[in-house]
């Protein structure tokens, strides 16, 4: 279960490319049935994506969001958790 103390790191199972401040995520797959979706991270998602370094946990990342954006810490944490839950298949997580 992903929590604020989970530390995300990038996974080799996804190819990603930065385009005009956004990220396109391309999941690698071995079956045509799974090859049906791409993900696009907007500039805000890209901001979070670039904070993933295998060292920061999600609460650290939420703190960075608060520094950058006009957002309350509770909302930043909630949104960061939601973000990572939504794209968890593209990342590895460890508990700290």
């Amino acid at each position: 279960m992903i929590s604020l103390s989970s530390t995300p790191s990038h996974s080799p199972s996804v190819v990603y490319r930065k385009i005009n401040g956004e990220y396109l995520l391309i999941p690698l797959t071995d079956n045509i049935a799974d090859m049906d979706s791409l993900y696009r991270l907007t500039e805000t998602g890209a901001f979070i994506w670039e904070l993933i370094d295998g060292e920061r946990d999600i609460s650290d990342i939420a703190a960075k969001i608060v520094e950058e954006f006009d957002v309350e810490p509770e909302i930043a944490e909630k949104d960061a958790l939601e973000f990572f839950r939504e794209i968890q298949e593209f990342l590895h997580f460890r508990e700290t």
Binding site: I32, L38, Y39, L41, T42, F69, I75
Partner: peptide, 23 residues
Amino acid sequence: PPRRRWPRWMNRITAAVAGWVRG
């Protein structure tokens, strides 16, 4: 005008499987 708001960050793009050589 207020400061920048915190937007939704992600759109899922569901793509049709493009056919051709995939059958």
